[in-house]
Design a protein around this nucleic acid. Sequence first.
DNA 1: CCAGGTCA
DNA 2: TGACCTGGG
Length: 336
Amino acid sequence: MGVDLGDLLERENIEIKELSGSWIAVDAFNTLYQFLSIIRQKDGTPLKDGSGRTTSHLSGILYRMTNLLEAGAKVAFVFDGEPPRFKRGTLDQRAETRSRAQEMWERAREEGLDGFKYAQAATRLGDDMVADSKRLLEAMGIPVIQAPSEGEAQAAFMAIRGDVDLVASQDYDALLFGAPQVVRNMAVTGKRKLPGKNVYVDVQPEVIDLARELSRLGIDREQLVDIGILCGTDYNVGLRRVGPKTALKLIREHGTLERVLKARGETIEDAVEIRELFLHPPTDNDYEIEMKRPDADKVMAFLCDERDFSQERVEKAVKRLEEAVKVGQSTLDKWF
DNA sequence: CCAGGTCA
DNA sequence: TGACCTGGG
């Protein structure tokens, strides 16, 4: 979800190798949802351990993060805290959509039909899954940061301060929170399943550079936030029949959100407070980002003994992880 | 999504 | 070596 600015922003395709040496703040909830919705069997069932606990997100974390670290990147996971009060409507609506999708999935299964897309739409990220994710990340030596409110805001804050180079998220919200660079499609294989059909296409990682986009569009960050609010964010419904293109035109014409609304004789509830939230969101500055040596025994014990992962596969991944972190910590690394 | 096998 | 497929938990 999030703000729909895809049509407005130009992205630059990159190779995963180009992330070598960069610190990446990962929007944890966004990434975990991605794993949970995609890592499924053909009938839509997620991966589960012997007791029926979902493990798709753990598989995603283990293999993707190992690959990223092996490519020379460094990552920190940033988890959401308390949602802003303006998000209530969106959260309720998502819960409603999920439960409807759950019903559709069950019906599809009863009738022996393909219910994959319903299963995806029914994806839930439970507290247990969040706890399991943090446990795995910590065992892998990857920093876990708890945001006071929105994870994307905290990640953007860390990027603005220069503690990380990029924010990883499929959403564009981090740009409104001021992230200088956002990386999307941060997968390694470059294959993505098309929604609906059982067809795979090449999808490359891509970077959006905030300063470059603002300059190209001839607006400032506050105006980009205004554009987002005009076409709708997680915190407000946008104006009717106003998408990113129209919103840009309106802001170019009138300059500010207030003037656009006045000129059109329309209102957006809490618009000014929502802009303030994007410009000055709750963040913490007492985080620590430092890769620790992975605890191989902990990773193995958790994934293999408790979550029924294959000993052989996890061992292989952990070996690669240990090697990657060793190389990453060596100061000689940058000379090669 | 990713790993790991197959096959040309 | 790379396109393709299956199973992972």
